[in-house]
């Protein structure tokens, strides 16, 4: 899948509180560190494999482990209405 943000949803820096947040109409949530790494790579062009590649190049972990994490995260973010696949 090639994830992109759902309409009206975006990742936004919360400078005053030193964190990033996912802003959606009438709600917001604070992604954990792993989710934030994935969300930063969501641009509507990169597909899931490309996201896994980008993370594998940066983090010292087996590709299968990263792929499984990314899959679970993307599914969760889609279920929460933040992303569409």
């Amino acid at each position: 899948m090639t994830p992109r943000f759902a309409p009206g949803v975006r990742l936004q820096e919360d400078r005053a509180r030193g964190r990033w947040i996912v802003m959606a109409p009438e709600r917001m949530f604070v992604p954990d560190e792993t989710a934030l790494e994935v969300l930063r790579l969501v641009d509507g062009a990169r597909d899931e494999a490309a996201i896994v590649d980008a993370l594998a190049a940066r983090f010292d972990a087996p590709r299968e482990v990263i792929a499984a994490d990314v899959r679970a995260l993307l599914e969760d973010l889609v279920a929460r209405g933040a992303l569409m696949g």
């Binding site: 936004q12 919360d14 400078r15 005053a16 509180r17 947040i21 802003m23 917001m28």
Partner: peptide, 8 residues
């Protein structure tokens, strides 16, 4: 407002 902490 943004500098103060408003997000929206």
């Amino acid at each position: 407002a943004a500098a103060l902490g408003c997000l929206q």
